[in-house]
Every structure is written in C-alpha cells, then in structure tokens.
C-alpha cells in the first residue's frame, strides 16, 4: 500500500524539515494530471453555462482568467529563478528547499497548462488572441496588459532575476514578497474569492475543480514563501549584517504591490459593472485580511504601518476610477495583432 502513515527513515534528507513536509505534500497532492481532469469532468457542462452567459458576464470571467493564465505563465517562467535563489549561500544550502522549489516549478507549469486547455476549449470566443508566448517575443494578453496585474508580472520577472543573479538578502526578500505574498498570496487568492462569487451565478464546474487543485498547490507555495521570508527576517533580527534591511524591503515591496493588486481588483469588478456580483468592497476587504494575516500575523512585521499600506491601496483605487481600461485593451489588441502577424 502506498499510503502508510509510517515515516520511512531517511539518510541525507532531513525529513523533519518544513520544506521537506511541503515537498512531500506536493508529491502527494500536487501531482494531479490536468489532462485527466479535463477528460474526467469534461467540457460539456462548462460550455453550456459559458454559452448561456451574456457578453458582459463573459467579459468579467475573461478579465479574471486573463490574469490567471498570464500570471501562471509568469510564475512558471520564474520558478527556475526560485530554484537558483534558494540554493544560494544566503540560505543553508539545504536540499529540501530545492526539492520543494522543483515541485513548485512543475505545479506552476501545470497551472499554465490547465488554463491554456480550458481557455482553448471553453472560452475561446472571448480570446481571439492569446496564443503568443512572451518568451517568443509576444506580450501578455491585452486585458492583462491593461490592468495592474500585467505590470506586476513584469516587475516579478525583474525582481526574480535580481534575486537569482547574485542578489543579496534584501533582493531576495523583495522577490519573495512580490511572488509569494503579492502574486500568490493576495492577487491569486483574491481571484479565488472572486471566482467563488462568480460561480454562484455561473457555475463552471470544470473550471472550479481546476481552481480547487490550483489553489491547493498555491497554498503550499505561499507557506514556502513565508517560511523563506521568516528565515531572512530571523537573520536580520539576530543582527547578521548582510541581512539588515530585509523587513524594510518586504514592506516596501508589499506597499508597491498592493497598488497593482487593487487596480486589478477594480478592473475585474467595478470597471466591468460587476455583472456576476463579486462586490469590489468585499474583495478589497478580503485582500486586506489576507495581507494582514501574512504580514502582521505570520511575519510579525513592524517595518511599516497598516495605514500606509491601505493608503497605497486607496491611491490605486482613485487612479483606477479614472482609468479608461477599454482604450488600453484596444491599444494592446492592435499591438498583439501586429505581433501575431510577425512584425
């Protein structure tokens, strides 16, 4: 039987390590097969519901799914940098962290795959253009480019590269904050909150199952990220010179990211009239709670003030209210078409 509760004795691998636990759980829970899921549940019910939606409702889903597919694509792309960063001398060079990072890489690739398959087989009418890979000179989907998420994913690439390519602990802290707190911990989890609401009105069963598997994987990624950040913070608190400034870096990055996230929240709700009743206020409230849990509870940060953080969200909201997203989408539609044509 493959499911005994008995722990098997290990040699060089530290099985008491939290990173090992996360890795092992990734093996047990995170190795689901996206293709099998599609076969098992099928597209039929989802297509039926999708086709029954009016254009505005489809648009709301499309805005959410755009940032998920581009986001998963971006985190999958940066996963290799995380593998490199956690094996740097700033950590204890433990194999367990690398083991988990490799699982994370697989999972992010699979998440990208899930959304790619889903989009192609269900939502394709709302995505006449989405095939371009940013690696092959493409850009993100116009909807992603139009909102804060697009900017955030680009920023993520820069921060992850800085951290992996000889970055110091503050660079690593910034990158991990952006990726695990910002993108996974608030932007994605806020997205799950939104999808839960939208599913009430438009139950896309297969999509929901996919989201459930994905959010379960993401939970481990977030625990991992917070664990990594905690290690850095502890070194700073112990007075190790090279780690000074870590808390501040985390805080600054979180404040920067909440702007992108708030803009995205507005983009997927109010700006499209919120036809599937997500409720922007409650989404922001939820995001604030998630941020508070991670930054004040888990990390016990005292580098900045909650008011400063929420003020950054307020500023972004004010900007969002004045944004003409449709015009930006249109602009990027043209750019996208040009890129597709090979210019």
């Amino acid at each position: 039987m493959d499911a005994s509760t008995d722990q098997i004795k290990a040699g060089r691998i530290d099985t008491d390590n939290t990173y090992y636990e996360l890795y092992q759980k990734s093996v047990e829970l995170g190795t689901w097969d996206a293709e099998k899921l599609m076969h098992k549940v099928g597209f039929e019910e989802d297509r039926e519901v999708w086709n029954s939606l009016d254009d505005n409702e489809k648009e709301q889903w499309a805005r959410l799914i755009s940032y998920f597919i581009d986001g998963e694509h971006a985190v999958a792309q940066d996963a290799r940098r995380i593998m490199k960063t956690v094996s740097s001398p700033w950590f204890d060079r433990s194999i367990e962290k690398e083991m988990f990072a490799s699982a994370l890489a697989l999972e992010e690739a699979k998440h990208t795959q899930f959304f790619d398959l889903y989009l192609t087989n269900v939502m394709v009418d709302k995505f006449p253009q989405y095939e371009l890979d940013t690696r092959r000179g493409g850009i993100q989907i116009p909807r992603t480019e139009a909102c804060g998420a697009g900017e955030m994913f680009e920023r993520q690439g820069t921060l992850q590269a800085q951290a992996a390519d000889g970055g110091d602990p503050t660079d690593i802290a910034r990158a991990a904050t952006n990726y695990h707190i910002g993108v996974e911990g608030i932007l994605a989890r806020g997205g799950y909150f939104a999808k839960n609401r939208m599913m009430q009105e438009a139950p896309l069963k297969l999509l929901n199952k996919g989201f459930q598997f994905i959010s379960t994987d993401e939970g481990r990624h977030i625990t991992f990220g917070l664990e990594v950040l905690n290690e850095l913070i502890e070194k700073e608190r112990d007075g190790v010179p090279a780690y000074q400034g870590v808390e501040n870096a985390i805080w600054e990055q979180a404040v920067e990211d909440i702007g992108y996230i708030t803009d995205t929240a507005y983009f997927i709700t109010e700006s499209v009239g919120d036809p599937l009743d997500v409720d922007f206020d409650e989404l922001v409230n939820r995001g604030a709670r998630l941020a508070g849990d991670m930054m004040f509870d888990t990390l016990d940060l005292d580098a900045g003030s909650a008011t400063e953080f929420m003020q950054a969200a307020a500023d972004a909201m004010e900007d969002a209210q004045g944004s003409d997203y449709e015009a930006v989408i249109e602009k990027y539609d043209h750019i996208y078409s040009a890129k597709m044509a090979g210019d």
Binding site: N285, A288, R289, G292, M295, F296, D297, A306, T307, M310
Partner: peptide
C-alpha cells in the same frame, strides 16, 4: 486599520 487587516475588527461598508 491594522485591526481590520488582521481580522480583529471587521468592517462592513464602502471600502
């Protein structure tokens, strides 16, 4: 604000 963010207080209204 920190209390709202950490769930010690809950706010209902126009965020």
């Amino acid at each position: 604000v920190e209390a709202i963010m950490s769930g010690k207080l809950e706010l209902d209204g126009d965020m």
